[in-house]
Computed example of a mutant assay.
Amino acid sequence: MTLADGGRITLNAAVVDIKADVTARGGSLTVDNYFKGGGDRGAAQLLLKSGGVDHFA
């Protein structure tokens, strides 16, 4: 996968399996199991492999 120059991808899941080459020239690729909704969309959540969710204040 090749992103446009300056492109950005953010993947949030308990398990992410990337089976491809990724090129992000001047951009970024973020893979994490921590999710925080923007603004007033809720508390931060830690996504667990078991399918559960831990909530943070």
Rank of each mutant, 00 (worst) to 15 (best):
L46V: 11
T2A: 12
A24N: 05
D40K: 03
K49T: 13
G27E: 01
Q45S: 13
K36E: 15
M1A: 15
A44D: 06
I9K: 01
T2H: 05
L3F: 07
G26M: 05
H55M: 11
A20K: 08
Q45M: 11
D17H: 04
T2M: 05
T2P: 00
V53C: 01
V31K: 13
D21Y: 07
R41F: 07
K19S: 12
K19E: 13
M1R: 00
N33I: 03
T10S: 14
I18C: 08
L46P: 02
S28N: 08
A20R: 00
G39M: 11
G38N: 14
M1Q: 12
K49G: 10
N12Q: 08
H55T: 15
S50M: 06
D21G: 11
A13N: 10
L3G: 06
V22H: 04
A20N: 14
V22I: 15
R8P: 00
L29V: 15
I18N: 14
T2V: 14
V53F: 02
Q45K: 07
R25N: 15
T10N: 06
G26N: 04
Q45Y: 03
V16L: 06
V15W: 00
L3I: 05
M1C: 09
A14G: 13
D17C: 04
L47F: 02
D5F: 07
L29T: 10
L3W: 04
V53L: 07
R41T: 09
A57Q: 03
D40E: 13
D40Q: 10
A44S: 11
D54P: 00
L11R: 04
G7E: 13
A14H: 01
Q45P: 03
L48N: 11
T30E: 04
N33G: 14
G6L: 07
L47P: 02
L11I: 05
K36V: 09
A4F: 02
F35C: 03
L46G: 09
A57M: 06
V16Y: 02
R8M: 09
Y34P: 04
F56Q: 06
A24T: 15
A24S: 11
D54W: 01
A24F: 06
G42S: 09
T23P: 02
A44R: 04
Y34L: 15
H55S: 12
Y34I: 13
L48E: 08
N12W: 03
A4H: 05
L47T: 07
G7P: 02
T2W: 01
D17Q: 10
D21M: 03
A24Y: 02
I9H: 00
K19Y: 03
S28W: 02
G26W: 06
V15D: 13
L46M: 12
L3S: 08
A14T: 01
I18D: 01
G7D: 12
D5W: 00
A14L: 01
